[in-house]
Design a protein around this nucleic acid. Structure first.
Lengths: 212, 212
DNA sequence: CCATGTGAAGTGATTCACAGCC
DNA sequence: GGCTGTGAATCACTTCACATGG
């Protein structure tokens, strides 16, 4: 079904996340059908852009009518690959790690954190949201045969590379890196960097007086 | 000093955040001077791109030598507008809000959360990291004369618009919206949306088998 | 001599405009 | 009639290539 193989721009994926957010909001409000115009207005985007983004993955609309909200949510979810469960492990049980483990919304979205690891002896054995923190050394054995595809790094930057090596060694193919540190991984492993300050920086830039 | 007024692309701002992260890492490692080539490699970017991004804001390098790491960090920080303190308020003292209030790193970066608000009577009066949760109704009076420029929304989506209206009414010009909901604000107010799932979606997309 | 800063060339995304279809 | 899906035209960003200057 999805993805004609003509290279989909990263920014299209970013926008799909926005469309999904807005569509879910519309669904909650009881909207059944929406056309690209009003959807674009709600997303503060351009209608043709939405139509083009969607046609990367298929034809989901009805000419003269628009898109069925529920169907489009399902189609976009399938296009993004979030119409299934993804098992994850998290390494680094600090403040951020604990907050993520406790954030049940991830589970609701199909991202199940099934293991928490840390190398700090004071944290090993602690329990958060029903998950015991295990020594990072045991990562590989603990996730064997569990179909874990995603690793989340929430360690300090100086441990990020070592942790990434552990994850790669354990067969992980996708890494979500919250550590403020670029990491090196083999070409078949995807890394997404989360910079929790980026949006604050953008705001500061927008608000700062540059009129020197 | 900063910003020749020739429209700076949003994506340049995003990249500056990355450069800053990598430069700070280099600084921790004791690197004193770096040229655009090695910096680009560390950022997984293109050297001319870095040079062009930087020249939007000034000339920070020395021909034949490169960039002084400390000076460049200062220059980029000034360019982004994060070489100063930004007072913030946070509305929505749920899990996410509490995690942000407790995250002392924000303070270290100059983003000081000086007020926490919620409209849930069960949360009002609670205290996190030395900050008492106050009823949202008192937002305006509480932040008057405090030079608060940024508001952070961490409420459920259904309250986001109302909270945004409160913030705008209180004179806030920048909003960081963690709620999965688009909001409408006057043209002179900047909104940055944080979708905590976006990077997970990107990973899922990268890992999902589209070869149907 | 080496790396920056920068116009020019190239590439890729966005928007337009309309044919196709319900 | 109205809205989607899509080639064509436009616009914006990226990369190249080199003149400039320490």
């Amino acid at each position: 079904m999805s993805a004609k193989h003509e290279h989909i721009p990263k920014i299209t994926i970013a926008r799909l996340s926005i469309y999904l957010q807005v569509l879910e909001q519309m669904q909650r409000e009881g909207v059944e059908v929406v056309s690209s115009g009003p959807l674009a207005k709600a997303c503060r985007a351009n209608a043709s852009q939405i139509r083009k983004d969607l046609t990367y993955f298929g034809e989901f609309g009805v000419r003269g009518v628009g898109y069925n909200v529920c169907e489009l949510i399902r189609a976009v979810s399938r296009s993004l690959g979030i119409d299934r469960e993804w098992n994850c492990v998290l390494i680094g049980a600090g403040n951020l790690g604990k907050a993520l483990i406790g954030h049940r919304e991830f589970e609701r979205r199909g991202f199940r954190i099934i293991g928490a690891f840390d190398c700090d002896p004071f944290k090993i054995g602690e329990e958060f949201a029903g998950l015991e923190v295990v020594c990072t050394r045991h990562l590989k054995e603990r996730i064997q045969d569990k179909n874990v595809r995603i690793g989340v790094i929430t360690t300090p930057p100086e441990h990020a590379q070592r942790v990434a090596d552990y994850l790669v060694g354990a067969g992980i193919k996708g890494i979500l890196n919250y550590a403020p540190m670029r990491i090196v991984v083999p070409a078949d492993v995807t890394v997404e960097y989360v910079d929790i300050f980026h949006h604050l920086y953008s705001l500061a830039f927008a608000l700062a007086p540059h009129k020197s």
